Simulated assay, not measured.
Amino acid sequence: MNKSWLAALSLAPLLGATQTLLQASVMAGLTLSAVLAHLACMTPLRRWLDEAASEVSSILLAATLVTCQTLALHAWGLEARNALGIYPELIALQCLLFEQSLGKTEQWRRACALLGGFCGLYLLLGTTRELLASGTLHLTSISGPDITGLRLASLAPGALLLLGVLLALIKRACPKQATPDREGNS
């Protein structure tokens, strides 16, 4: 599968399951544990499997890990499971994305930095959305915020707009020159 499709599909949990800081922290924890477990299990398997078998085993392992997480949420965190909807299952796509970004070179530092940034983005987006929608952080209830402020912030399209604004602010605060191939020049 194309890396850009996986990256686009991994935005769904980021935008849909970050209405509150608590939802964002649960999703960040689930993502962190699933991706690290997936990478730790796939690293020794890659030596013994050819490319096609490695891809199939990666997909099966990601689905297995995410299913186990979902069953654990059903057993011990039903309120969180109901509030998050279908988004925990989409973490399997993020496992595949990190597997492809790591590649054959096993660049653990780059993968961990990317994963840390992704989890930080979860928390930043969840905090900002909850503050804009309700004005305060409610750390006791995982369900959606009581909307007293900006209603758009609690909806997924508002999350996409807010993500664009946050990424623009981050880029503005940390300016780095793009390489010519990233600027669109041929």
Rank of each mutant, 00 (worst) to 15 (best):
Gly85Ile: 10
Ser101Phe: 06
His38Arg: 09
Gly16Asn: 06
Ala62Gln: 00
Leu139Gln: 07
Leu22Gly: 00
Ala63Ser: 10
Gly164Ala: 10
Lys3Asn: 10
Lys104Gln: 10
Ser54Thr: 14
Thr179Asn: 09
Pro88Gln: 00
Arg109Phe: 05
Pro180Gly: 15
Ser101Cys: 14
Met1Ile: 10
Glu183Gly: 05
Leu123Asp: 11
Ser57Tyr: 12
Pro157Gln: 11
Met42Gln: 10
Ala37Tyr: 03
Ser58His: 06
Thr105Glu: 07
Gly29Val: 08
Ser134Gln: 13
Asp50Lys: 06
Leu6Ser: 04
Ala37Asp: 02
Ser4Gln: 07
Thr127Asn: 05
Thr31Lys: 03
Ser10Val: 12
Trp48Ser: 11
Asn2Asp: 15
Asp50Pro: 07
Gln19Cys: 12
Ala75Asn: 08
Ala63Arg: 00
Arg47Asn: 04
Ala178Ser: 13
Thr64Tyr: 00
Ala28Gln: 09
Leu163Asn: 03
Val26Glu: 01
Leu14Tyr: 03
Thr31Phe: 02
Glu106Gly: 12
Thr148Gly: 09
Gly120Ala: 10
Cys95Arg: 00
Ser154Gly: 13
Leu161Ala: 12
Leu166Glu: 09
Ser101Gln: 14
Leu22Glu: 01
Leu162Ala: 11
Leu22Pro: 01
Ser143Lys: 05
Trp5Gly: 03
Leu11Gln: 07
Leu84Ala: 06
Pro88Asp: 00
Arg151Asn: 07
Arg47Cys: 02
Lys171Pro: 00
Ala53Val: 03
Leu152Ser: 03
Ile142Ser: 02
Ser57Phe: 15
Ala52Val: 15
Lys176Ser: 12
Lys104Cys: 01
Ala159Tyr: 04
Ser54Glu: 15
Glu106Cys: 14
Leu115Arg: 04
Ser154Asp: 11
Asp50Arg: 04
Ala72Gln: 07
Gly117Ser: 08
Asp181Asn: 11
Arg109Ala: 11
Leu96Asp: 01
Phe118Glu: 11
Ala168His: 10
Thr127Trp: 08
Leu124Pro: 13
Ala40Gln: 08
Thr127Arg: 08
Thr179Gly: 09
Ala159Trp: 02
Thr18Asn: 15
Ala83Asp: 06
Gly126Phe: 01
Thr70Arg: 04
Leu137Gln: 12
Asn185Ala: 12
Thr127His: 03
Leu39Met: 08
Gly184Thr: 14
Leu152Cys: 03
Gly29Ser: 08
Trp76Lys: 06
Ser134Phe: 03
Ser25Asp: 06
Ala72Leu: 11
Arg46Val: 01
Leu131Phe: 05
Thr64Lys: 00
Arg81Thr: 02
Thr43Asp: 06
Gln19His: 13
Leu36Asp: 00
Gln94Pro: 01
Ser54Lys: 13
Ala28Glu: 03
